[in-house]
Simulated assay, not measured.
Amino acid sequence: MDKLGVVGCGLMGAGIAEVSARAGLDVVVVESSVLAADAGRKRLERSLQRAEAKGKIDSADEVLSRIRLETTVDAMADREIVIEAIVEDEQAKADLFSRLDKVVEAPDAILASNTSSIPIMKLGVVTNRPENVVGIHFFNPVPVLKLVEIVPSLLTSPEVTERARALVEGRLGKQAIDCQDRAGFVVNALLIPFILSAIRMLESGFASPEDIDRGLVLGAAHPQGPLALADLIGLDTTKAVADSLYEEFKEPLYAAPPLLLRMVDAGLLGRKAGRGFYTY
Rank of each mutant, 00 (worst) to 15 (best):
residue 109 A to Q: 03
residue 109 A to I: 06
residue 109 A to G: 00
residue 109 A to K: 04
residue 109 A to M: 10
residue 110 I to P: 03
residue 111 L to C: 13
residue 112 A to M: 14
residue 112 A to Q: 04
residue 112 A to N: 10
residue 112 A to L: 07
residue 112 A to I: 08
residue 112 A to D: 08
residue 113 S to Y: 10
residue 114 N to A: 05
residue 114 N to D: 11
residue 115 T to H: 15
residue 115 T to L: 11
residue 116 S to T: 01
residue 116 S to K: 10
residue 117 S to E: 15
residue 117 S to I: 01
residue 117 S to H: 03
residue 117 S to C: 03
residue 118 I to A: 07
residue 118 I to L: 12
residue 118 I to Q: 01
residue 118 I to F: 03
residue 118 I to W: 03
residue 118 I to P: 02
residue 118 I to Y: 08
residue 119 P to N: 05
residue 119 P to L: 10
residue 119 P to I: 01
residue 119 P to C: 15
residue 119 P to G: 02
residue 120 I to Y: 03
residue 120 I to P: 01
residue 121 M to N: 10
residue 122 K to E: 06
residue 122 K to M: 04
residue 123 L to F: 00
residue 123 L to G: 00
residue 124 G to A: 02
residue 124 G to K: 08
residue 124 G to H: 02
residue 125 V to Y: 00
residue 125 V to L: 00
residue 125 V to W: 01
residue 126 V to I: 05
residue 126 V to P: 05
residue 126 V to N: 04
residue 126 V to T: 06
residue 127 T to L: 09
residue 127 T to C: 05
residue 128 N to M: 06
residue 128 N to G: 10
residue 128 N to V: 02
residue 128 N to Q: 14
residue 129 R to I: 07
residue 130 P to N: 08
residue 130 P to C: 05
residue 131 E to L: 06
residue 131 E to D: 08
residue 131 E to I: 05
residue 132 N to F: 01
residue 132 N to C: 09
residue 133 V to A: 02
residue 133 V to L: 09
residue 133 V to R: 00
residue 133 V to F: 00
residue 133 V to H: 03
residue 134 V to I: 14
residue 134 V to D: 11
residue 135 G to C: 10
residue 135 G to Q: 10
residue 135 G to M: 12
residue 136 I to H: 02
residue 136 I to D: 01
residue 137 H to F: 04
residue 138 F to L: 11
residue 138 F to E: 10
residue 138 F to H: 02
residue 139 F to H: 07
residue 139 F to E: 08
residue 139 F to V: 09
residue 140 N to M: 15
residue 140 N to V: 15
residue 140 N to I: 07
residue 141 P to H: 11
residue 141 P to D: 14
residue 141 P to R: 15
residue 141 P to G: 09
residue 141 P to F: 14
residue 142 V to P: 02
residue 142 V to L: 10
residue 142 V to T: 09
residue 142 V to F: 05
residue 142 V to E: 06
residue 142 V to K: 14
residue 142 V to G: 14
residue 142 V to I: 08
residue 143 P to N: 12
residue 143 P to K: 04
residue 143 P to G: 02
residue 144 V to P: 04
residue 144 V to M: 15
residue 145 L to P: 04
residue 145 L to F: 08
residue 145 L to C: 05
residue 145 L to W: 13
residue 145 L to V: 12
residue 145 L to Y: 15
residue 146 K to R: 15
residue 146 K to S: 14
residue 146 K to I: 11
residue 146 K to C: 08
residue 146 K to W: 05
residue 147 L to F: 12
residue 148 V to M: 14
residue 148 V to L: 12
residue 148 V to Q: 12
residue 148 V to K: 13
residue 148 V to H: 09
residue 148 V to W: 15
residue 148 V to S: 11
residue 149 E to T: 11
residue 149 E to C: 11
residue 150 I to M: 13
residue 151 V to S: 12
residue 151 V to Q: 06
residue 152 P to K: 15
residue 153 S to I: 07
residue 153 S to C: 08
residue 153 S to N: 09
residue 153 S to F: 06
residue 154 L to K: 14
residue 154 L to I: 08
residue 154 L to V: 13
residue 154 L to W: 07
residue 155 L to A: 09
residue 155 L to M: 14
residue 155 L to D: 05
residue 155 L to Y: 10
residue 155 L to G: 03
residue 155 L to F: 11
residue 156 T to C: 06
residue 156 T to Y: 06
